[in-house]
């Protein structure tokens, strides 16, 4: 890892009395890539919220006179083959991408966590059933599985959520199950049981919080994954055709890739920047929150 040195620095400077928040703040001071990622993500979120104020044009406004114009002061990123303003479409596209990034990741996070906790804590047949199901999902090519779901249910953003949740929960469930298995054997869980704490409380109050650092990292790394999946599927033509998404823009622009490179460069760079920002942040959080590195 590039920030091995940083990690050591940050271990030495951390005070034993600092909480987890302090170690994250310190991580941002040392790990500039993570800080950059955080700033970029905040900017993208602001861009999505204030899209109407940033873009001067309606992203879906056709203008057949201004077709395939190169970037200019009037159209910063040029126009596409139907005369729509590419800058406006990139700005509005951030809404789709963030939605696609957050919602299915959250669904698969919750689903995977609950199933992973169940499999790890209850064990036996429940464990077998859940984990074999996860194996099936993981063994199946994800893109194919997601496309099958989209074809079957139809192209809409809701179905995209479902498809991405289906391919993502298994990884989370595996990680959570593995952690549950090791945490349930610890003395503090035994101590909690010796205090008469119920099973449900042990799972959700004692085991889950110990998985949380990993889950947050997993979540920040799932988001760029989901954005990539959506882009790939839109590029392949199984996305929601009505949503202005970056993947769809690349897909529609590919026929003019040589003549009008801005058509694929603008949304392509937007995807790249967003995915990298989340990856940087996720890596930084992983370094900061690994509780076992510190103890």
């Amino acid at each position: 890892m590039s920030n091995n040195k940083d990690a050591r620095l940050f271990d030495a400077e951390i005070q034993p009395n600092d909480g987890p928040l302090a170690s994250i703040l310190h991580m941002f001071r040392v790990n500039h890539a993570a800080l950059l990622g955080l700033i970029l993500i905040l900017l993208i979120i602001l861009m999505a919220i204030f899209a109407p104020f940033i873009a001067r044009y309606d992203p879906n406004q056709l203008n057949l006179i201004e077709m395939r114009k190169p970037p200019s002061p009037a159209h910063w990123f040029g126009t596409d083959d139907m005369g729509r303003d590419v800058f406006a479409r990139v700005v509005y596209g951030s809404r789709t991408s963030l939605l696609i990034g957050f919602v299915p990741s959250l669904i698969s996070l919750i689903l995977g966590t609950v199933l992973g906790l169940l499999a790890g804590y209850v064990g036996g047949r429940v464990d077998d059933l859940i984990m074999r199901l996860a194996d099936v999902v993981l063994a199946f090519p994800s893109l194919l599985l997601a496309m099958v779901v989209m074809y079957t249910l139809g192209s809409s953003i809701l179905n995209m959520f479902i498809a991405l949740s289906i391919i993502n929960w298994a990884g989370t469930a595996r990680v959570v199950r593995a952690q549950t298995l090791s945490i349930k054997e610890t003395e503090f869980v035994e101590a909690a049981r010796s205090m008469g704490v119920s099973r449900l409380s042990i799972v959700f109050k004692h085991i889950l919080p110990n998985c949380l650092p990993n889950l947050i990292v997993l979540f920040t790394l799932d988001i760029p994954g989901a954005i990539m999946w959506e882009s790939s599927m839109s590029f392949l033509g199984v996305g929601d055709p009505n949503a202005a998404s970056w993947g769809l823009m690349v897909s529609q622009g590919k026929s003019y890739a040589y003549m009008c490179p801005w058509l694929i460069l603008a949304p392509g760079i937007a995807i790249l920047v967003t995915v990298m920002a989340f990856n940087f942040l996720g890596d930084g959080l992983r370094d900061a929150m690994d509780p076992y590195l510190k103890s």
Binding site: E187, V189, A191, A192, S194, K205, N210
Partner: peptide, 16 residues
């Protein structure tokens, strides 16, 4: 009935 364990280092949940 209460119980006290051998390892005080690991008998308390580290994240609570």
């Amino acid at each position: 009935i209460s119980m006290i364990f051998q390892e005080p280092m690991t008998s308390l949940n580290p994240v609570l």
